[in-house]
Design a protein around this nucleic acid. Structure first.
Length: 420
DNA sequence: TCTGGGGTCCTAGGACCC
DNA sequence: TCTGGGGTCCTAGGACCC
């Protein structure tokens, strides 16, 4: 049996923990650049604010209903997530952090018998330790646990827990879940299946294997087996190292000046190198891309990317920046209004045993020490004060974040004050 | 004025090799 | 007229997830 624990409206709930006045009031958290609504409290959902709606399209509505609006505060959400996961891991050693606000617990080999009661205890404990409300779904496979979680939100709002404990409960759940709400079925496949006459998860679970394999590939077949209660999705209790690492942002304003855009890219390259070091990896290929704003159909469009092979795997900031600029100089073209640039590190390998080139002149040991010192200083300051000159300090590309809450849990200057 | 960012996996098709 | 059969590697693009 698997449990899927999901934090309710996670980003909104994080804001509420430190600002209880928001309780009962609609809350919306925006994406980077204050672009779209990516998290909504139940009250905001009731107002009809859909996931991913551009903020400028709902300005009036937000004001009219006195919605509390926040920019994304990833420092806060990341730290709160760590605390939730820490609490969950106390219930079961076989835990898999699936995303910032979700985790699977695998109860195989555990002595728990009443999983419904266990679910209730988990919810209560997480709430007590972190202030974050959760929902718990329990079932035989991960796909069914996901479904049970969704089912709990809809049909068990009072307890927040659903355990698909027997055949009858599983069937009740399958029959009451529409195709589009199955984990792994997106808009495209939902439309296709609809046309073929499938409406519920129950119906899909009974589709013939051959047909599913042919129309939905092995991914679909795995999914159908999961619906039948046969686990097909591998457990990953260790956080696997990322296979690609991407750093990219849209600019607050459209940019035309080459040096401004290059400066942005150098900053993303530095972040990318830091992410590599954090997971003890190096990369051997970089992909650099630039693009104009595709929503501005009246503007001339330009999208281009390039792959750059490195001489040897690296995670050194100045090295990564050097190659990023090299690629950028090839693909950048004057005369366009640019919206975004970014860098993807690929061909990722562990940072032990780096194959050095025969004529390597770089002193890698020295570089490594420099990086370690830089990371240590920046980490202790909580910001990237030690930087490369090309990163600049005058960020023309800065993203918008006009509704940012304090970093309550990670910055001593942002501690919540009860009374002045 | 204003439309996120970061991932994964799978398939098809081309290039190349023997 | 006619054009092997495998295998591997790479890339692009689609679909999905949070």
């Amino acid at each position: 049996m698997y449990a899927l624990i999901d934090c309710n409206n996670f980003y909104c709930s994080c804001e509420r923990v430190f600002n209880p006045k928001l309780e009962g009031r609609p809350v919306v958290v925006l994406s980077n650049n204050d672009g779209c609504a990516v998290a909504r409290s139940d009250e905001a959902k009731d107002l009809g604010i859909a996931m991913g709606t551009p903020a400028f399209m709902i300005q009036d509505e937000l004001r009219k209903h006195n919605v509390a609006v926040f920019s994304s505060n990833y420092t806060l959400y990341g730290d709160m997530s760590d605390r939730v996961m820490q609490t969950l891991s106390g219930f079961c050693p076989r835990m898999e952090t699936y995303s910032i606000d979700e985790a699977f617990l695998d109860f195989q080999d555990m002595a728990y018998s009443d999983l419904l009661q266990l679910g209730l205890t988990i919810r209560k404990t997480v709430k007590q330790h972190t202030g974050i409300p959760t929902t718990v779904g329990i079932a035989a496979t991960k796909t069914l646990a996901k479904m049970a979680n969704r089912f709990a939100k809809k049909k068990r709002p009072d307890t927040g827990v659903f355990w698909a404990a027997n055949k009858q409960l599983v069937e009740e759940m399958l029959a009451n879940t529409i195709i589009r709400d199955i984990w792994g079925i997106g808009a495209q496949h939902a439309r296709f299946l609809q046309k073929k006459g499938f409406h519920t998860a129950m119906e899909l679970s009974q589709a013939p294997d051959d047909w599913v394999r042919k129309e939905l590939s092995v991914v679909g077949l795995r999914l159908v087996h999961e619906l039948r209660g046969i686990p097909c999705i591998a457990d990953e209790f260790e956080l696997p190292a990322k296979k690609n690492i991407c750093t990219s942002r849209s600019f607050g304003n459209l940019l035309t000046c080459k040096s401004d855009i290059r400066e942005a890219l150098c900053n993303y390259a530095a972040t990318c190198a830091l992410k590599l070091r954090k997971q003890n990896s190096c990369c051997k290929t970089l992909e650099i891309f630039v693009q104009t704003n595709p929503h501005k159909i009246e503007h001339r469009q330009y999208v281009r990317s390039i792959r750059v092979q490195l001489e040897r795997p690296t995670n050194n900031t100045s090295e990564i920046i050097k190659y990023a600029v090299k690629g950028f100089d090839i693909i950048f073209k004057e005369g366009y209004l640019y919206k975004k640039t970014g860098i993807i590190a690929m061909d990722i390998t562990p940072d032990t045993h780096i194959q050095t080139g025969l004529f390597d002149s770089a002193n890698q040991e020295k570089d490594k020490v420099v990086m370690t010192v830089m990371d240590t200083i920046n980490r202790s300051l909580g910001k990237d004060l030690v930087r490369m000159a090309v990163q600049g300090f005058d960020k023309k590309f800065r993203v918008r974040a006009e509704h940012l809450s304090p970093r309550y849990t990670t910055d001593i200057n942002n501690l919540l004050k009860i009374r002045n």
